[in-house]
Amino acid sequence: MKFRIYRALARAVVLESIRRKDLWVVAILGFLILLASGALGFFGVQGLQLFAKDLAASVLSLFSAVVAVLTSCRLLPEEIKQRTLYPLLARPISRLDLLIGKLLGAVIVTWIAFLMLCALTAVALTTFHVQFEPIMIQYIIIKMMGLVVLCALSLTFSAYMTPQAAATMSIILAFGSGVIVRGLIMAYNGVGPATQWIYKLIAAALPQLGVFDLGGRAANIGWSPVSGAVVLQLFLYMATYTGAMVLIAWAKFRRQAV
């Protein structure tokens, strides 16, 4: 029964997104990738495979994060603003169900966009004679897990702030949390025990989106796919963090006057 609710809500999000031509933007971005790769190909591809793979991973990471954030951030505020929330909430569904269904929709839209970009990037990479490697499939799967976390993060921010502020915060954390954690690591030994605990808390609370990006391993030479145990741990982390984010969003949304 619950799954039926989530599926219905998610389908509406996806249909809206497709018909609003959001994914056209992705197609345009993908076209730019092809164009850029064509330009590089014109320059000469011999020996650029490593760079092409690295660039592809970076571009995929950037574009998919933007799609995830922009799709997720506006779902809830837009429902409230356009008052489409009323007929939804008038149904026998809880607000938590609504959040989960919306998140699922955002995740599916993001996944579609990501897979479209992957397909276009794959075409671009073939012009560079990049060979297929199993780690590329693992890269895609694990990246999709990371996008779930990012969608949940953005949705949660949007429950507490304006869509613009939520998008800004999400983008900052999407691309900055790794930098912040690296900074904490560098500063850790120079601070007192109390501050070290604060550092630990900050590092644990920040979304570890970097661990879902195997781009570095996929692009460079000779790195093997990660083990099944690591994939399982990543899945658990994704589930836990996403669950926590949804609960935090629900804490605000469940009694919010609409």
């Binding site: 599926r7 809500l9 809206e16 007929p87 939804l88 026998p92």
Partner: peptide, 18 residues
């Protein structure tokens, strides 16, 4: 106000499923 990019039939199907 209902989802602008859905049809009335899809709108009712959505609410019906809920």
């Amino acid at each position: 106000l209902y989802y602008p990019y859905l049809t009335p039939l899809e709108t009712l199907r959505l609410y019906g499923e809920l």
